[in-house]
């Protein structure tokens, strides 16, 4: 904090960035903030509708399957826990890639970016499986085969919110994977090496962590509570 104290008096005097942050990074942060408002609007709408309903389907009854699990075996939360850990680990490899970039360590950047891309692809694979499974159970936008927790007839609000919000998040993961693949190609082409810095990786990293951050909220709101 000592740097802040000395910088404070002339912070807004001009001639230097008052935020001490690169322009592209500032813009990425503000983009992510606007995205936060979009996701929050979705999740708060979901919460409002759930609070206004007399009963709601029990997530543990809906999301209780696992790939290749025998019929009748119920494993609530297990599959989605694996998805959560995949995303956390891919976030870690992304931080490692960003840090390697700060030290101009091209080999480590490439290695960690590849791991991050694999993590993202695994997550998307899990989500594709889950969506397919739910679709075959009769769930889709406008269709809800799951009864409420108290055995009463359900509304389609549950599936509409689930598919819209996890779909919007999945789209963000997909975009993140594409961005990371572009970063990997640029690293392999020595674009950042010639530029002298790997700041672009840092911006891609911010986006990727945001995707992980949103999942923390989606996971809690849909599967845990």
């Amino acid at each position: 904090m000592s740097t802040v104290a000395t910088a404070q008096p002339k912070l807004w005097a001009g001639g230097k960035s008052p935020f001490n942050v690169e322009y592209g990074k500032v813009m990425m942060w503000y983009f992510l903030m606007s995205d936060t408002f979009t996701f929050a609007a979705f999740l708060i709408a979901y919460g409002t509708v759930r609070f206004s309903a007399n009963s709601w389907p029990d997530p543990n009854e809906v999301f209780n399957t696992f790939p290749f699990a025998p019929e009748g075996v119920h494993t609530p939360l297990v599959f989605v826990s694996i998805m959560t850990f995949i995303l956390i680990v891919s976030s870690v490899t992304m931080v490692l890639a960003v840090q390697a970039g700060h030290h101009n360590d091209k080999k480590a950047v490439v290695k960690n970016l590849i791991l991050t891309i694999i993590g993202g692809a695994l997550f998307l694979g899990c989500q594709a499986w889950e969506w397919t499974h739910l679709y075959h159970e009769g769930a889709w936008w406008g269709k809800n085969p799951f009864l409420n927790a108290d055995g009463t007839a359900p509304t389609v609000n549950f599936t509409n919110f689930f598919f819209t919000i996890t779909g919007f998040h999945g789209f963000h993961v997909f975009t993140g994977v594409i961005i990371n693949i572009i970063m990997l190609i640029m690293t392999l082409n020595n674009t950042f090496e010639k530029r002298g810095h790997y700041l672009m990786i840092e911006k891609a990293g911010l986006y990727w962590h945001f995707v992980d951050l949103v999942w923390v909220f989606v996971f809690t709101c849909f599967y845990l509570i």
């Binding site: 802040v4 912070l11 935020f19 001490n20 500032v26 903030m33 931080v95 962590h209």
Partner: peptide, 30 residues
């Protein structure tokens, strides 16, 4: 669970997204 969720969000934003190490002025705009 909600408190744990918010603390997870704090750790991701503060350390992984590095916001904790930015200047206070910038942190406040976020």
């Amino acid at each position: 669970i909600i408190i744990l969720m918010l603390s997870k969000a704090f750790y991701i934003v503060a350390y992984f997204m590095h916001l904790k190490h930015e200047l206070r002025t910038f942190i406040m705009t976020i």
